[in-house]
Design a binder for these strands. Structure first.
Lengths: 151, 151
DNA sequence: TTTAGACCGCTATATTCTAGCATTCAGAGC
DNA sequence: GCTCTGAATGCTAGAATATAGCGGTCTAAA
């Protein structure tokens, strides 16, 4: 359960994003495609201004809005996630499903693993219900040490 | 369970922070005290630059580091929390206990409720264990609609 | 082929936070 | 009390992150 886009195969993710765009009538323009590629290639969290620097090498006119607009598109359509605690962006390994992201972030190696923990979601729902609160989106980012860095 | 510092009584929180400082040998300087007061009075999430503006009225020399250093002190000692998704700061309703913050954030009225949901923490621990991940800190921020705004 | 809306180029600027260094202050040890 | 050390603050500058706004261009649908 816990997988990175990298492990999942960037080409597979790419194909599934393209499929989703066709189905939902979304325009995966060259710019958006390139930003998504950069995030997939990174295999981990990327900062907006690093993306901008990368873009600039092939796209002289790139400016902050260039990147942020592409990121907005990818975020809105759940093709990537934003790591709120890091101001960074990561690819999403199952772009078909609409979901909130839950992440394990290693403080030693910065590796990020997206998880899907129904118990956690249940806990959120239960706690929210006790407060009469109707949840729409949850942000879960857990810091710690990953398996590799423990060994 | 689920309480805001405001409901809990700002003076009570204040007293408990003062007690904690005495016990741990921390210096609750006038500046830090004032920043804490401002956050308590706000009764909800406050932005650093709003604190700065408030400070400036009584403290002409206040600059960004003035606020951020006070916030750092308060955060380190768990007297306040930072809402990662909002770049905002909220008071902590039980400063004695060391804990990670879990928050319900209303998208209509911006009210923030700190909760303590063991099931959620259990869910995090279980999911982490499956990955061989050793968690040290969790950030949970749930967006939605609060009871009042549903009515 | 026209046209509305989406997309992009571009400049500027807002917002959030940190670095770095000088000065002042509080408390520990004498 | 006096000195000394580390903590706290004053202050300037600037880094890092993100958005506003406007005009031009492209796309897809009527």
């Amino acid at each position: 359960m816990g997988q990175t886009a990298h492990e999942h195969g960037t080409t597979a993710v790419f194909a599934s994003v393209e499929k989703a765009c066709r189905e939902r009538g979304l325009r995966l323009t060259p710019l958006r495609r390139q930003v998504l590629e950069l995030i997939l290639q990174a295999g981990g969290p990327v900062k907006a201004y690093d993306l901008l620097d990368s873009l600039k090498t092939s796209h002289h006119s790139a400016a902050p809005p260039t990147v942020y607009r592409a990121l907005d598109f990818l975020l809105e359509n759940h093709f990537i996630h934003r790591l709120e605690t890091r101001n960074a962006y990561v690819s999403c390994f199952h772009p078909e499903a609409s979901h909130s992201g839950q992440f394990l972030i290693c403080e030693q190696c910065d590796q990020v693993t997206e998880i899907n923990a129904p118990e956690m979601t249940q806990g959120v729902l239960k706690a929210a219900a006790e407060q009469g609160f109707k949840p729409s989106k949850e942000v879960v980012e857990v810091y710690g040490t990953c398996r590799k860095c423990i060994e």
